[in-house]
């Protein structure tokens, strides 16, 4: 960051190379729109470049960067892909069996549609909490909302998703007893 603050554009290149994958993925998770996600990620790095001389390492660099990304995504929330545009199955890579691939693809589309149908605040909270693996406190830190606001958003969001995704529940087996992120 100190090299970047001195105007070294190559230092920005190293930062972009190191953080672009996570940044772009975060923006895509939130917006569900690859074009908007790319715009947001580029703008986030430019903002880092512009503010490099004012950066004080009170928080981790990635926290600062991701806060910029979340803010930019929120500003672009009218361009988030709506639920209606997420019904088509998207190309998959994991299962080789065509039937499994189709089922996987349909499930993915259904999940994305359910998440996209949530109100923007709930959608952002769920994406950050469940998909990006943040704790409620971290979600509050990234969004600037209070932790209780995040908690309330998540409770409502998961309640809605429980209803919307009930048909996707596996037919066999009880749920696992251990909690985990994945």
């Amino acid at each position: 960051m100190s090299a970047l603050a001195a105007g070294d554009v190559a230092a920005l290149g190293r930062l972009v190379e190191r953080h672009q994958g996570r940044t772009l993925r975060l923006a895509r998770r939130i917006t569900a729109n690859p074009d908007v996600a790319e715009d947001v990620a580029q703008e986030a790095f430019l903002r880092v470049y512009r503010a490099a001389d004012r950066y004080r390492p009170s928080a981790r660099f990635t926290t600062w960067l991701h806060r910029i990304v979340v803010n930019l995504c929120w500003d672009h929330r009218r361009r988030w892909r709506p639920a209606g545009e997420l019904t088509a199955a998207e190309p998959e890579t994991s299962p080789t069996d065509p039937a499994a691939r189709l089922a996987d693809s349909e499930m993915r589309a259904a999940v994305r549609q359910a998440v996209a149908a949530l109100p923007p605040r709930q959608r952002l909270a769920v994406v950050l909490h469940r998909l990006d693996g943040r704790t409620m406190r971290e979600v509050a830190d990234l969004t600037g909302w209070t932790e209780s606001a995040v908690e309330s958003c998540l409770v409502r969001a998961y309640r809605q998703l429980r209803r919307d995704l009930a048909h996707l529940a596996p037919k066999t087996g009880a749920p696992a007893s251990q909690e985990s992120r994945r």
Partner: peptide, 16 residues
């Protein structure tokens, strides 16, 4: 909740 939790992971974006 746990079922929702597991199903949600299926909707994640792939590596970019």
């Amino acid at each position: 909740l746990q079922i929702t939790w597991q199903v949600l992971a299926a909707g994640d974006e792939e590596e970019v």
